[in-house]
Design a binder for these strands. Structure first.
Lengths: 340, 340
DNA sequence: TTGTAGGCGTTATCAA
DNA sequence: TTGATAACGCCTACAA
């Protein structure tokens, strides 16, 4: 079926090892034979069997990636693009898996599939929700290739890349305060999500430091969807008719809030200022254009793969796993008309 | 490093072949030895090396997927989710690649990487743009595993799954006509895109059949972005101040158009009705909620993989490639306030 | 029911 | 500079 080294060797009148050397640009080979072999390779359309190579080399040059939620909002795809680009640029292939649910704790089948295929490393790009990180234990990690976690709460001994959600939320709230707002409500994502809690804490800390009200009546919980944002702001207005601004945990919920304001005939930002989080590509075209917090998600993906690459190289050199590190990127506020 | 069949065999006091039988649930084995072997497997934490297995079986149980544009709009991620789910459910692993540019004609490195890894099949999930399908020739395909194309113009001899964009656009325009609109402009995607041309043709055919104006002054070309939608409607209003509605080639461009209408103080749908295409999750929360065309993108992904699976099985049984087929899914109009 | 021998396609070792 | 031989981990054929 497929052309093999043997076929090429036979045609070129050399040994398989010689062909192998040509294929891998190894050591010195006489120009003459090299050319002869190369001609044979092209004539036969030879392509090396990476599986066989991996078997003997004990490395698959493949990285595994686990993700979730590509279809629901804009974040995961952007992270994935960064991951894929960096994987490709480093010469790896990418094995890809989605979890059916983000808080799935039944992750062993996924991990086993990766191990069975002898991937060189794993990028775990799932949000931290509830207990879904509990499987990460030293004894389990020992039987796995190096792993880098994306968007998980940093923990000693683990390699983690994440956005500093707290700092991002603080920027957003600080901006509202600077605009003269004093009654600042918040629509959080699900409190089971670490990222969501961080954004909430950023809201709370900033208000408290400024000596402003951060009481529970200013807080409602959404589920990231625009519908929950709409529901959320209705509830907020009921609890606290005096609010002058709202910080939403993501752009979708902010969008839902905008819609409710329109249908109530309220003016934005005149009556109420609204700020989101994420800076989805459309945010600048919402009505009014949405002030939000831009996250370097593609960069996060790239950095995660770079870290992983280092861990892999380190383990190969017998360094008993290079010191794991944590990288937190600080997002950037993007001011638009919904708040100014 | 890794536990092998040999290790298990030694511990259980049997031959490697016996262990292999247990691992693969093969033929009859005495309960006694089976249990003994299984105990050894668990004790050692044995995991089969799929690479070695693939080498001898001449099948990797891996499907390759090529995509593009995950970060720009909502379509590709939804297709990808369907692809991944179906791949997983059929017991394959998924090798994943993104192209840096969708109209890249330099696809040989990508294909080679797949062939080198002996993938069992390929899902080519790239939009058809310009000449980017020209590499698909019988002689090239012969040296490749089975391929299914997603969102490409159907061609004899190829397996293609796509949305019937023309029918979708026709539904949208027909709806506008039914609402009493008579001067219906269109903001198309890039005309280099097959999908975009199809939607344009749907617009044109429907208007012509209804005896309405479909002249070039009613047409502007965007690039799928919200910004181009904004630019597009400005240009349309200049060319044809008399338009009473606009069909946008996707939801992003429709969103851009909505924004311009707001800033001009025009009423939607009173002054101008607007219809999009895609039904992104947020479309129902745009202001006003956007009438648009829902595409079964996840379904497209699943169907593509199912077709691929059949092609693979057929080729294994020596059927000289099962008859390739084309599947066109008809999208569904979703009526919201922007047009009614 | 179980085991032995051989090979899948590649690379490393070590000798020529 | 080249080549024979032995792995890598698994599975199939054929025996026992």
């Amino acid at each position: 079926m497929h052309v093999t080294l043997q076929d090429v060797a036979k045609l070129a009148g050399v040994s398989t090892k010689t062909v192998s050397r040509v294929v891998n640009n190894q050591s010195e080979i006489s120009q003459a034979t090299r050319r002869r072999v190369q001609a044979a390779i092209e004539q036969l359309g030879y392509r090396p069997n990476i599986l066989a190579r991996s078997l003997v080399n004990k490395r698959s040059d493949t990285l595994a990636v686990v993700a979730w939620g590509l279809e629901f909002y804009g974040g995961p795809p952007r992270v994935l693009v960064g991951i894929e680009q960096q994987i490709f640029e480093l010469g790896y292939s990418m094995l890809f898996s989605l979890l059916p649910r983000p808080d799935d704790t039944n992750i062993n089948p996924v991990l086993d599939a990766f191990v069975d295929r002898r991937v060189d490393g794993i990028v775990w790009a799932l949000p931290e929700i509830g207990d879904n990180h509990k499987w990460v234990k030293p004894e389990r990690l020992k039987s796995l290739p190096p792993i880098v976690f994306v968007s998980m709460e940093p923990r000693p001994g683990l390699s983690v890349v994440a956005i500093d959600n707290r700092a991002g939320a603080a920027q957003a709230v600080r901006h509202l305060i600077d605009q003269g707002r004093r009654k600042i409500g918040v629509i959080t994502g699900p409190t089971t999500w670490w990222e969501s809690r961080e954004r909430y804490e950023g809201w709370k800390d900033t208000l408290q430091c400024a000596g402003l009200d951060a009481s529970p009546s200013l807080v409602v919980e959404g589920d990231w969807s625009a519908a929950s944002g709409a529901q959320g702001i209705r509830q907020l207005l009921e609890q606290r008719p005096d609010i002058d601004s709202v910080f939403a945990g993501n752009d979708q919920m902010a969008l839902g809030a905008l819609g409710v304001m329109h249908s109530l005939g309220r003016n934005i930002p005149g009556d109420i200022a609204i700020v989101g989080f994420d800076d989805v590509p459309e945010a600048g075209f919402y009505w009014p254009p949405l002030t939000t917090v831009y996250q370097q998600l593609t960069e996060i993906g790239r950095i995660a793969v770079q870290m992983l690459h280092k861990l892999i190289k380190a383990r190969r050199q017998g360094q008993d796993d290079a010191e794991p590190s944590t990288i937190l990127l600080t997002p950037q506020l993007v001011v638009r008309a919904s708040s100014a």
